[in-house]
């Protein structure tokens, strides 16, 4: 399995290098944006929070691109038939992909923490203030991957792209509906917005049930990721019919 991960890294090293350079550029740009606010503008938490969150989203998007490239590279019938003929071949192939996705997500989380530390030093605040949110984001990415990867394994990379597009459209639609009909008092000023964020992070939500669901989400994502792997092992051979030569 680690041999297959090594193979994936070597086979895709060009794109991985380009993506990693992009990642460090993002950390540099976001840090510069934050330092610009700290030096010139009004030093409030929003001027720290927004650039850092944008940076984190960019980091996870880039990690997603790397994951997509690695999974796409093995979508060939010749490779699929070869790996299936080896002992425990399907399990090794699928588990190497899942482990790669998990590793890159964790590396993305680590880079998000580096961004947080560097920008908090620049801005002059304590680091890890939004640690709960960063962690939730990481588990959200694991959750999304857990749902997406079986689609990709069974129907190919195009299905995975369609899935991501559908998720994006649904999220944007939900945000629009909330903006039109929901309570947007928390977004009327930066202080109220930051107050809402800190209530969410400290678990001070109105409903105890909602608080428990949010707290249990990381475990749900982890368990789902494991069952997603089991499902993908069963779907792998069927998925090879969609591959090109």
């Amino acid at each position: 399995m680690f041999g297959l991960i090594y193979k994936d890294i070597i086979a895709n090293k060009k794109i991985i290098k380009i993506m990693l350079i992009g990642l460090f550029l993002i950390i540099f740009v976001m840090n510069s944006a934050v330092s610009g606010y700290a030096d010139v503008g009004e030093k409030n938490m929003m001027s720290y929070f927004l650039p850092v969150m944008c940076g984190h989203i960019c980091i996870y998007v880039i990690m997603g691109c790397i994951q997509q490239e690695v999974i796409k590279r093995d979508e060939r019938k010749l490779w699929a038939y070869y790996i299936t003929s080896t002992p425990d071949g399907v399990k090794q192939q699928v588990s190497s992909k899942y482990l790669f996705v998990l590793l890159t997500t964790v590396i993305g989380f680590s880079l998000c923490m580096v961004l947080d530390y560097v920008t908090s030093l620049t801005f002059g605040i304590m680091p890890e203030m939004f640690m709960s949110l960063y962690m939730l984001m990481m588990y959200a990415v694991i959750f999304i991957n857990a749902v997406e990867i079986p689609f990709v394994i069974r129907f190919g990379n195009k299905a995975g792209n369609n899935y991501r597009s559908i998720v994006f459209v649904v999220v944007v639609f939900a945000v629009l509906v909330y903006a039109l009909f929901g309570d947007i008092a928390a977004f009327s000023s930066s202080e109220k917005f930051m107050e809402m964020i800190s209530c969410l992070l400290s678990g001070e939500v109105k409903s105890a049930g909602l608080a428990i669901v949010i707290a249990a989400f990381p475990y749900i994502a982890g368990v789902l990721f494991f069952f997603s792997y089991k499902l993908s092992c069963k779907l792998y051979l069927k998925g090879t019919e969609c591959y090109n030569g």
Binding site: M135, A208, I212, A215, A216, Y219
Partner: peptide, 23 residues
């Protein structure tokens, strides 16, 4: 108020931190 719910939430959050913090 809400001590049991609060304890469960904190236990789950701390556990998730611990698992993420193993790095």
């Amino acid at each position: 108020e809400n001590r049991i719910a609060g304890l469960i939430v904190t236990f789950l959050n701390t556990g998730a931190f611990a698992i993420s913090g193993f790095l």
